[in-house]
């Protein structure tokens, strides 16, 4: 990393512990309570006129301006399960991340354990509740020109919707495709709230970048974020990030010991391309299967180099202009 991006330690500059999620997809039942709770709490407009997307039980599609929690459904056959298990095993034998001598203990540990795949079934459903990663080095935050995106005292990344002017740079800056500019609100939730029932609720923040706030309005009051609170299986766990990472590591070891080598963590490594994520996931297949990037990298990591190249190019332009006047004949 470089001087321009934050380091994991910088994030915790407020004295508050950094907050985060651990989403354990191995116990997710795909009930979408998190999606609904998030929509209700944040009064997000619905995304479409109830179209079916032909993607298993997922009719939401992806994260976006109006969807801050998204439950992915993947149907897999025996062959795909086998492949997931294999790729997980390959990951284990890489012994990564390794801070000591690479590989050895991990691989041998697992070799010793009973790793007979527990009845590889003919079919499985993968369900995973995706959310903003609240990256340590957040691409969206780095490139925001107005300062609308900021790092909160809890180490999360939040848009100030009264500051954002909707330039859209953050949308391009996020390596996970999370943040998006709200184009319009199709219709608001039709519930009995502080607006007239039966009438369309006003859509807030049109034209402004929107994403998960990690329920900033709740956590400042010591409450649990709406999605985590609504999750009936504790698949979504909320707490201090350190505890979340520890819980994630414990859980993945437990699954490995059961022979489920397909289990792996996503975002728990502070030396990855985004400096670790605030939302850590336990996945049961490669990240791209869930629509997650396999090797995300915060674009600002290369920014000093880009500035250097741009500087050379600018100097070249000046040189070309000077040369043009030198060879362009006397006036």
């Amino acid at each position: 990393m470089n001087q321009l991006t934050e380091s994991p330690d910088h994030v915790r500059h407020t004295g508050h512990p950094r907050k985060g999620f651990f989403t354990d997809t191995s116990i997710c039942i795909g009930c979408k309570a998190c999606e609904v709770a998030c929509k209700e709490w944040n009064r997000n407009p619905h995304d479409s006129e109830y179209e079916l997307l032909k993607s298993s039980y997922d009719n939401t599609g992806s994260l976006g301006a109006d969807t801050w929690r998204h439950v992915a459904f993947i149907e897999q056959d025996r062959e795909q399960i086998g492949r997931a298990r294999e790729s997980g095993r390959a990951l284990v034998s890489l012994g990564m991340p390794s801070f000591g001598p690479p590989g050895q203990d991990q691989a041998s540990n697992l070799a010793g354990a009973d790793t007979t795949p527990p009845d590889t079934s003919d079919f499985r459903w993968l369900m995973s509740s995706d959310v903003c990663k609240h990256c340590t080095n957040a691409g969206c935050l780095d490139v925001c020109p107005t300062g609308a995106l900021f790092r909160t005292e809890h180490g999360t990344v939040v848009v100030q919707d009264d500051v954002c002017n909707g330039c859209g740079t953050c949308v391009a800056g996020c390596p996970f495709g999370v943040i998006e500019r709200r184009s319009d609100g199709t219709a608001g939730p039709k519930a009995k709230r502080d607006f007239t029932p039966g009438e369309q609720a006003p859509t807030r923040n049109v034209g402004v970048a929107q994403k998960c706030t990690l329920c900033h309005d709740r956590i400042v009051d010591g409450q649990t974020p709406a999605c985590a609170q609504a999750c009936p299986t504790t698949s979504i766990k909320y707490g201090e990030r350190e505890d979340m990472v520890a819980a994630a590591k414990e859980r993945v070891a437990q699954l490995h010991a059961q022979g489920l080598t397909e289990a792996r963590l996503y975002g728990a490594n502070d030396s990855d391309g985004v400096g670790g994520t605030g939302s850590v996931f336990l996945l049961l297949d490669e990240p791209e299967v869930y629509g997650l990037p396999p090797d995300p990298r915060v674009p600002t990591a290369d920014l000093p180099r880009m500035f250097k190249r741009a500087g050379i190019a600018a100097a070249g332009m000046l040189a070309a202009a000077t040369a043009a006047f030198l060879v362009g004949g006397r006036a």
């Binding site: 284990v92 990564m96 991340p97 490995h256 792996r264 990240p287 396999p294």
Partner: peptide, 14 residues
């Protein structure tokens, strides 16, 4: 990974 750099992947097994 081929070059032996294995500490910086976002996907980890432990």
């Amino acid at each position: 990974r081929r070059a032996g750099v294995i500490h910086d992947s976002i996907t980890t097994s432990e």
